[in-house]
Design a protein around this nucleic acid. Structure first.
Length: 575
RNA sequence: CGGGGUGUAGCGCAGCCUGGUAGCGCACCUGCCUUGGGCGCAGGGGGUCGGAGGUUCAAAUCCUCUCGCCCCGACCA
């Protein structure tokens, strides 16, 4: 393609609203442009990168035994009412009405539709398993879209769904999808990691996320050299070091101590002369229907996702100051479990492991010292509700774990019968018994993966595309467009490259060299070939790689072969 | 949803406080010049100042409402 025939509009300045690198660079390079909050145009260059990723995804999905189909973006409310998610999903679900005032939604995901397809068509264990995928536009009305393609409201996603007669068979498909995802991200040249994940809104038993490692990632990952890795929402720890020995006397019953204005764990512990780990941090949460008190050791923090799972509720939030006073009778900062009535108390095991502790007295400016868990209060549930942190021991090997940040680009789930049961997606097994199908689902953010690639591969001048995702693999640059002999040589080389099947963009603009080089660096074509009068005088062109910029003179006559060899080398690196 | 900010030419911004001819840089057009890292000179085109209402002789500027967009927070007692 000739540059002057395509549609490339680069920006010299950063758009004012672009915050993260991928958004900034993709906007400046003319790959995307914003239409509304969280809604983007994929301009020709950006679309090429998206399409390249899609091609890789298709290959790997088919290889893993999944078949492509396309389901509608607009879906009838009835299906969502059947699964129960019409009411559960909340405002993220974009609900629309047609002219007859019938309810529809713009699909944020397709479990309902695909389950409907399968239940209408598939009735026997002989027809299972089924594995279907699509690459399609989703809409999720995010609270706060941001970061360009990283968290848009409208976005392109590959979603796959599998249906099985047995849990064992689901496991086979799950492992195949897992392997396909690994291959996809490897083929894109991305540095990624697979971690255990919470199942969140989608539900199910087992779940893994694929994270592209990047400092700007929105997710925290806890991992260990031994191979354990999990989203911080899900991460568990090995046995934590127990609290130091209680340094004070142990009274018969908790003693009330005046602690004026001391709210934080550090302040209280310092004042009392005990360790932060001796305190019971008491947090009041509000769920859909009730208040809940969560207890963690003073040096730990509550993991709201884990707590939510223990409570089996959809929404949870910290109670407001007024509500805390109403529920506990004391001011915020002075809450404790002792004497709390009529409210569910969930304690982390580390709290129950404390021999003696201190905690709030449910009275302004007072704490209780010498509290013995089990003697002075009894929780309703004891469950792991603490946040794992860097330095905590690994649950598998006990070594200290580290924390990294990542961008969630893929998420796979074992759904079980969460959708097949309410939607009556059943089959007859070999004994003629009717059973719900066992399902898995597998998502991959297409736009987000491309954006993550930019986050991971850029420098001061712009994007440095990994070869498989570059909009064009090679850019051929005509430098002296006023010199007929140079134009002639460049045109001829372009023709030879096309003939050789090289994916080349020919920058035939009559711009000054600086303008061209800056645009080219910004867009980030992996291989650059420059035809200019200076080199041509020696019968040479100049070849260079975007990632190192090192200039390699090549005889004009050998240019096509040299480029092909260079591309082969780059491909070999990824294999 | 709460808090803050912002909306002026395609992009990035000034002007607003203190009302009176709408400006700058880049981009764009014409001509000359220039061609290995965002040239130079000269000339030129383009803006309902987000929208509606109000105050005023007069509103980008002051007031009210409204819409869009951005940021921060949904944060640990």
């Amino acid at each position: 393609m000739r540059w002057t025939r395509t549609f490339i509009r680069t920006l010299r300045q950063d758009p004012a609203d672009a915050e993260v690198v991928s958004h900034r660079l993709m906007a400046r390079a003319g790959m995307i442009s914003k239409l509304a909050a969280g809604i983007y145009n994929y301009l020709p260059l950006g679309w090429r990168s998206i399409r390249k990723l899609e091609a890789i995804i298709r290959e790997e999905m088919e290889r893993a035994g999944s078949t492509e189909l396309l389901m509608p973006a607009v879906q009838p409310a009835e299906l969502w009412q059947e699964s129960g998610r019409w009411f559960k999903y909340g405002p993220e679900l974009l609900r629309i009405k047609d002219r007859h005032d019938r309810d529809f939604c713009f699909g944020p995901t397709h479990e309902e539709v695909v389950t409907d397809i399968v239940r209408r068509t598939t009735t026997s264990y002989r027809q299972l398993p089924a594995n279907l995928y699509q690459i399609q536009t989703k809409f999720r009305d995010e609270i706060r879209p941001r970061f360009g393609l990283m968290r848009g409201r409208e976005f392109i996603m590959k979603d796959a769904y599998s249906f099985h007669a047995s849990a064992e068979d689901l496991d086979v498909a799950y492992r195949a999808m897992e392997a396909a995802y690994c291959r996809i991200f490897e083929r894109c040249g991305l540095e990624y990691t697979k971690v255990e994940a919470d199942t969140g809104n989608i539900g199910g038993s087992e779940s893994h996320e694929f994270m592209v490692l990047a400092g700007t990632g929105e997710d925290a990952i806890i991992s260990c050299a031994c191979g354990y890795g999990a989203n911080v929402e899900k991460a568990v720890t090995g046995t934590l070091e127990s609290a130091p020995e209680w340094p004070l006397a142990v009274p018969e019953a908790p003693e009330k101590v005046h602690t004026p204005g001391l709210k934080s764990v550090e302040e209280v512990a310092g004042f009392l002369g005990v360790a932060p780990a001796h305190l019971i941090k008491t947090m009041v949460f509000e769920t859909d229907e009730a208040f809940v008190v969560a207890l963690v050791r003073g040096d730990r923090e509550v993991n709201e996702v884990k707590l939510k799972n223990v409570l089996d509720c959809t929404h949870i939030q910290l109670a407001s100051e007024e509500k805390i006073e109403k529920v506990t009778g004391g001011a915020m900062g002075f809450s404790g479990p002792v004497g709390l009535e009529g409210i569910r108390i969930v304690a982390d095991p580390t709290v129950m492991a404390l021999a003696v502790a201190a905690t709030g007295a449910n009275e302004r400016d007072h704490h209780l010292v010498g509290v013995v868990p089990g003697r002075d209060f009894e929780p309703d549930d004891v469950a792991d509700i603490a946040m794992a942190a860097a330095g905590d021991p690994c649950p598998r090997c006990g070594k200290p774990m580290t924390e990294k940040r990542g961008i969630e680009v893929g998420h796979i789930f074992k759904l079980g019968t969460k959708y097949s049961e309410p939607m009556r997606c059943t089959f007859l097994d070999a004994d003629g018994a009717e059973r719900p199908m066992i399902m898995g689902c597998y998502g991959l953010g297409v736009g987000r993966t491309v954006a993550a690639a930019v986050e991971q591969n850029h420098d001061d001048h712009g994007i440095v595309w990994p070869l498989p995702l570059a909009p064009y693999e090679v850019v051929l640059v005509l430098l002296n467009s006023d010199r007929p002999e140079v134009v002639e040589a460049a045109d001829a080389l372009y023709a030879r490259m096309l003939e050789a099947g090289i994916e080349v963009l020919y920058d035939d603009r009559s711009e000054r060299p600086g303008v061209k080089f800056n645009d080219i660096d910004l867009i980030g074509f992996p291989v650059r070939v420059v035809v200019g009068k200076r080199g041509l005088e020696n019968g040479q062109v100049e070849m260079s790689l975007r990632r190192d910029g090192e200039k390699r003179p090549v005889p004009l006559t050998d240019a096509v072969t040299a480029v092909q060899e260079l591309l082969d080398t780059l491909r070999a690196e990824l294999a």
